[in-house]
Design a protein around this nucleic acid. Structure first.
Lengths: 118, 118
DNA sequence: TGTTCATATGAATATCTATTCATATGATAA
DNA sequence: TTATCATATGAATAGATATTCATATGAACA
């Protein structure tokens, strides 16, 4: 990866700063997990599903109807959210109701809303 | 899109809840922008660049060295961050120093760190 | 116990995007 | 004014992923 360096990497590196920052960086694994979390949030369908669930628990078909998408598309995305443990669900008769399972989500989204609306 | 509905969309929709939630949802455009923001955060290289910049402003080559990646790869990703106005830069001689341009980033990342480390 | 129906899923496709490689750009320093 | 070098960029490629379509699953209810 570093093999195709251009000249500046030989000339202009501030070794002391690089070393200091390297030491302060969170573990690789944590940074990877953070990116994975944001990746889940980085799709407008999932963002819309999450915002729907901020308002009310809902079954798959209601979410699909609300967002004007197919039941299948919503179900696939709910799976992604389930695998990330961002949503939970309960059964009532034949219907399965989905809801958010984490408090951080609201905080993260509030900050994001502030950012994009300022 | 709604044409290929399966039966439940005819049978099991709770029209009142759907209508109420639809009304409360933020505008489409805002939701789209939020997803776009998270999409930028949803890449481990960009997460690492941002975390580097939490510690110190840095030139492209220093970031590349710190993260053990090529100058080109970092430059491409810095462009994405610039276009989203998440980083700013200043020139000093031949060197260009990059830094974060927004306060919300730190808050959003702190929440994300809390989420993944709990 | 069999049927119904809300939900889940597998395969296919189309779109998007991160990195590499090679090279351009353009501000600085001489 | 020219040479240098830190940075930027275009094209190509490989890998990821969102949606669709068709169909499976399995809990509830009769």
């Amino acid at each position: 990866m570093r093999e195709n360096s251009v000249k500046c990497e030989i000339e202009c590196i501030h070794e002391d700063i690089v070393a200091a920052v390297k030491e302060k960086l969170p573990p690789e694994e944590i940074l990877y997990d953070v990116a994975e979390l944001f990746k889940v949030f980085g799709d407008s369908t999932r963002v819309r599903i999450i915002c729907v669930l901020f308002e009310s628990e809902m079954c798959v078909c209601d979410i699909a109807e609300t967002l004007n998408m197919t039941q299948s598309a919503i179900s696939h995305q709910l799976r992604v959210l389930k695998q990330s443990r961002l949503v939970k669900f309960r059964r009532e008769g034949k219907t399965i109701y989905y809801s958010l399972s984490d408090n951080h989500i609201k905080n993260i989204f509030n900050q994001a809303f502030e950012h994009v609306t300022e």
